[in-house]
Amino acid sequence: MNSATKKDDVLLDVRHLKKHFHVSRGVLHAVDDVSFTISKGKTLGLVGESGCGKSTLGRVVIGLIEATNGEVYFRDEDMLKFDGRKKSEFRKKAQIVFQDPFSSLNPRMSVAQQIAEPLIINKIFAKKVMELMDTVGLASRLATSFPHELDGGRRQRIGVARALALDPEFIVLDEPVSALDVRIQAQVLNMLQELKNERGYTYLFISHNLSVVRYVSDEVAVMYLGQIVEKAGNVDLFKEPMHPYTQALLSAVPIASLAPKKERILLEGDVPSPINLAPGCRFAGRCAYRQERCLAENPTLREISSGHSVACHFAGRLERHA
């Protein structure tokens, strides 16, 4: 977070959040000591590859999965300590949109029923459905249609309408356009941006697609094996990535242009298993800059320049090892 940001602008403040799963082979560190804040009306983009823990993180911060440890301040109160009425109040304020609009909708409910469901559960008069359909650009004639009759973009609009139904402040968008064709992807991204600008929603935008994250985010956090390895303002992160993983990730994105490209950094091997991790830096096994220290000690996220934090012992003074 930019140090100049006033504290009262912060909507979500996540501190040392951990989510561990006990599996037969040991402990799976899905989210491991993650801290970040999101200011009101801003979008934090969370990028990382499959299995890095980004979706688990998204579900923990809105209370869909219980945390193992840590604090999640929504305004000034720790959401993880909420129960009863407080918890249901919070759940109205914090919503989520899932990746696959087909499996996250009920195939036996019409469009209007899907959107009305959160309103009915919370005893809010159901005529708001039409307003919501209008907000997300679904024609009213589609109210009685079923999910299988609609294309992916329209299905995802239902998912967004459901999330907006209870006037939330904070929305987790978990790969909201990854299952969509490029043409529809552009429509949904434009709609999400317009909603944010008009209504001041705060987003946590989870995606593996760096170009999409760059397009929507104010700030970006890069996740690797359960931890945030780099966090910076949108412009900074894409212009001057400092963590070796972020650098490799950015260089791997194919660009639809014939202009000369930066040298591609090819990572060897796959992301290791998050179960029973070795003590050192989690990226060390694939890092071209690795030193003795990296194998012994896991670096913490530290601010290298204003608003730009990196979890790497040698950030800013990387020298290729081999």
């Binding site: 043409r183 760059r214 412009v235 994105v253 639809a256």
Partner: peptide, 29 residues
């Protein structure tokens, strides 16, 4: 890539967010 001729080809280029374009624009649909 240096001069697409078909309006559809042009549309395909413009609909996708890219790492090398200016920030703040709207995607064309």
């Amino acid at each position: 890539y240096s001069h697409p001729l078909h309006p559809y080809t042009r549309g395909l280029f413009d609909a996708v967010p890219r790492l090398d374009t200016r920030l703040g624009g709207k995607l064309s649909v």
